[in-house]
């Protein structure tokens, strides 16, 4: 069980690192928000599942799954609110032509 949870946690860390690289590297605010949503949806999922596997079947595991569900419901709302505020306040997205 430990091996499995380590595999899950390492996979989650990989996505978290990719998202951090993306947050630093991507050119404009709208694209950076994609990187943040990448972390929230897959990186956090893999890490929390790995931790829950390590914890074993108990009420703590249930609570970890509750955190996961909360992240999945709330984070899109936050991302959407941020991006909508950016659009409504007139921040122009970077449009790159196909080349």
């Amino acid at each position: 069980m430990d091996i499995l949870s380590i595999i899950f946690i390492v996979a989650g860390l990989f996505f978290l690192i990719v998202a951090a690289i993306g947050v630093i590297r991507l050119p404009d605010m709208y694209s950076r928000s994609h990187a943040v949503s990448l972390t929230d949806s897959l990186g956090a999922f893999l890490m929390l599942v790995g931790i829950a596997l390590h914890e074993g079947l108990s009420i703590n595991m249930l609570k970890i799954l509750v955190v996961l569900v909360l992240l999945y419901i709330l984070n899109p709302v936050i991302a959407h609110a941020t991006v909508r505020a950016a659009l409504r306040s007139g921040l122009k997205p970077l449009e790159k032509e196909n080349s």
Partner: peptide, 8 residues
């Protein structure tokens, strides 16, 4: 939730 697309 799907990375790569975001509702604005």
């Amino acid at each position: 939730l799907t990375p790569g697309t975001i509702t604005v």
